[in-house]
Design a protein around this nucleic acid. Structure first.
Lengths: 120, 120
DNA sequence: CCTGTATAAAACCACTTGGTTATTGAACGA
DNA sequence: TCGTTCAATAACCAAGTGGTTTTATACAGG
């Protein structure tokens, strides 16, 4: 995933209204007015949110007469999740490795030459 | 995870500088000036980014004399990832369920009473 | 006690964001 | 063709963001 897309995706997910829109879309396509209804918010406001979601690739638009149905774009949702998952795993591993090392050093220092725990 | 924390977390992750800071922290604690060095950016700017990361719980600060070492907060990183993963799974499942249903309906309609594909 | 160092805080600026209302555009239905 | 409906665009506004420079604070060490 490109950094720009990551920026756009996380930024898109950072808004509760947009997360609610995604949640709503999980139960099927919807038009802009349908999406706007529950939000006590004007139609243009929702259109703006949709544009943000679209720029992040989280959503795509169809065409049905004058309606522009919105649908979840599962693929790019998965891409974003995978990215986070991979990085998180890596970060966590590094952290734990360092933490273990630090713990070892501290233990050594404390006991002056008698490693207490099962340090490899 | 509370909506506010989700907002803060995704917003924090939406900035490439902050993601780079997290990546850097995976290889160990660092001070503000250490973190600021590679970024051709002033120290206060980095301090602001750190405050954003801290508000999201992604990072915590220690105290070592006048230094304030920053460390990755693996736990809340995991919380965020888990949240996304759960929701993504749910969304994707709903989507696929609906998509399959839609495919079935279309097939029925198209062939007028002779399901062509292996629809269960 | 003064000096240097590490960080935070303040004040400021340009740009973006999330919202509004009003207007325009596109497609249908009669 | 005319009105209606769904959505996008425009123009605007308040508040937030990401950066700056300058100033203040806290601590260590001679």
């Amino acid at each position: 995933m490109s950094p720009d897309l990551l920026d756009a995706t996380f930024a898109a997910l950072a808004d509760p209204t947009r997360r609610a829109i995604l949640a709503r879309l999980a139960s099927g396509e919807a038009t802009v007015t349908e999406l706007a209804a529950p939000f006590r918010m004007s139609q243009p406001a929702v259109s703006k949110h949709l544009k943000v979601l679209e720029r992040a690739g989280l959503v795509s638009r169809g065409r049905d007469a004058q309606r522009r149905p919105v649908r979840l774009e599962a693929r790019s949702l998965k891409a974003a999740t995978d990215w986070l998952e991979n990085y998180r795993t890596y970060w966590e591993e590094s952290y734990q490795r360092l933490d273990a090392l630090f713990g070892e050093l501290k233990a050594e220092e404390g006991t002056r030459g008698g490693k207490p725990e099962g340090a490899s």
